[in-house]
């Protein structure tokens, strides 16, 4: 029998919203799947699409970017840049052999801890349905 699939999801969380919402979810003891590994960034606009791809190439089962609601970016329009890039990532993932469902960008505000937990739950379920990342631990051109 195949060992149980324990997925890992990398989430780039904006310092001002996603990360704060995750902090708040903790304070409120909201339980969500343990697959998430949060990487704090100052702004969702800081995340280079290459990082999303890199995470998938390295075996992440899913990658999330969590940025601020439109109009609420701490840096004017960093989240809009992130949204535009996300559209690109969405489109390109299949080019590089990944289901685009392995990637999710979402917007929420620092108070939306429940929303945060729900989104993580949704992503976790998605990733379980997709099964293990087919390219995990495979040379996908990411290393020379």
């Amino acid at each position: 029998m195949r060992p149980e699939h324990k997925p890992k999801i990398i989430a780039f969380c904006c310092n001002w919203c996603g990360y704060a919402a995750a902090d708040l979810a903790g304070i409120q003891r909201i339980q969500y799947p343990d697959s998430l590994r949060i990487i704090r960034v100052m702004c969702s606009g800081m995340v280079h699409p290459e990082m999303v791809l890199h995470a998938l190439n390295k075996g992440a089962d899913g990658v999330m970017i969590i940025g601020c609601q439109l109009g609420e970016c701490h840096y004017i329009d960093g989240n809009e840049k992130a949204m535009a890039r996300a559209e690109l990532i969405d489109e390109l993932l299949e080019d590089f052999g990944f289901e685009n469902d392995r990637f999710l960008i979402t917007r929420l505000s620092s108070s939306e801890s429940e929303q945060f937990a729900r989104t993580v739950g949704t992503m976790h379920k998605r990733v379980l349905e997709l099964g293990p990342n087919p390219n995990s631990n495979q040379d996908n051109g990411d290393t020379p």
């Binding site: 704090r40 100052m42 702004c43 606009g45 800081m46 995340v47 280079h48 701490h74 960093g78 840049k81």
Partner: peptide
């Protein structure tokens, strides 16, 4: 230090300290 430049640079030549 928002790093939008970092998210843009194709050469990783501009980086935000600590990130």
């Amino acid at each position: 230090g928002c790093g939008i430049c970092q998210g843009t640079c194709p050469k990783r030549a501009i980086n935000v300290v600590d990130f």
